[in-house]
């Protein structure tokens, strides 16, 4: 049976791992290749790098990180952050990424997603959606909007409709981040995640808000997510991937338990 995936995410800036708390107060915390190997040994199902390098001249540092990681870690790797052109995608895939995650560029030019999926195949095109709950002037819940620029810029797009459109344009997967929950550690946005997951027929990765192992369980059950992405709970060693898998298995979520199979014997 297909298992639910646990995906640790590393925020990478200038080739080094950082973790933003709601995208500010970044703290330097290590070598991405080293951290990736630890997650690999613990049985992570995939890895995700989010490149938050700001300066243009340092943009290529991520390529080096991807090359070095792909030499040592044999599981799927998604890279996101600042991807704007077909050439950006080609270079990342060539460096060893398996998937790329496109966010702002998709909002600015949806045709880019179509072109990327046609060129490289849907299986490697992830569309990242940053969503926030909207409320009417009376304060009633009014669906979810798509935001860019770390949640600061409203696009006017409805998150559910946008997810469906991106699927039609060839996205192979949706990486859904709740900007209300990101950095809070008080759980994933379950109704948002379930709404998106039910609206599309491609896999949905839930992101934003993981603070406990029960939060992972909620996103994969109530939230109907196919995978969960988390950064700080793994990065700061609050929990290991093993502990997360054990907890989920005990609660009836199908997960891949770590297998001991050494090929180099």
């Amino acid at each position: 049976m297909l298992t639910k995936r646990i995906i640790p995410c590393l925020d990478v800036k200038d080739g080094r791992v950082v973790k933003g708390v709601a995208f500010v107060n970044l703290r330097d915390a290590g070598d991405p290749v080293h951290v990736s190997k630890i997650y690999d040994q613990e049985g992570a199902d995939e890895l995700c790098f989010l490149d938050i390098t700001a300066s243009h001249e340092n943009r290529d540092t991520i390529l080096d990180v991807v090359v070095r990681t792909a030499e040592q870690v044999f599981m799927p790797l998604t890279v996101g952050g600042g991807i704007r052109t077909i050439e950006d995608i080609r270079r990342l895939l060539e460096a060893g990424a398996d998937k790329v995650s496109i966010n702002t560029a998709a909002v600015q030019n949806p045709e880019f997603v179509k072109a990327a999926a046609n060129r490289f195949g849907s299986q490697c095109i992830v569309v990242a959606i940053d969503a926030k709950a909207l409320s009417s002037c009376e304060g009633e819940a009014n669906g979810w909007g798509v935001f860019t620029h770390g949640g600061r810029k409203e696009t006017g797009l409805d998150a559910v409709a946008w997810a469906k459109k991106m699927m039609e344009y060839g996205a192979g997967e949706i990486l859904l981040t709740s900007m209300d929950k990101d950095g809070t550690k008080d759980g994933y946005a379950l109704s948002l995640t379930a709404a998106i997951s039910e609206a599309v027929t491609i896999p949905v990765i839930a992101s934003g808000g993981a603070g406990t192992l029960h939060h992972l369980y909620e996103a994969l059950s109530l939230g109907k997510a196919d995978a969960v992405l988390a950064a700080s709970i793994f990065h700061y060693r609050t929990y290991t991937i093993d502990q997360a898998k054990t907890y989920l298995a005990e609660h009836g979520v199908p997960v891949r338990q770590r297998q001991f199979c050494s090929p180099v014997s």
Partner: peptide, 29 residues
């Protein structure tokens, strides 16, 4: 959900040489 994406198990019907040492129930991507 399509694509079928992620880790799933294999049941071995014939032990082909490339599967030496691998048992049914092994997870692959």
């Amino acid at each position: 959900k399509i694509p079928h994406m992620g880790w799933n198990t294999i049941q071995i019907a014939q032990p082909a040489p490339p599967l030496n040492g691998i048992d049914s129930g092994a997870f692959v991507y």
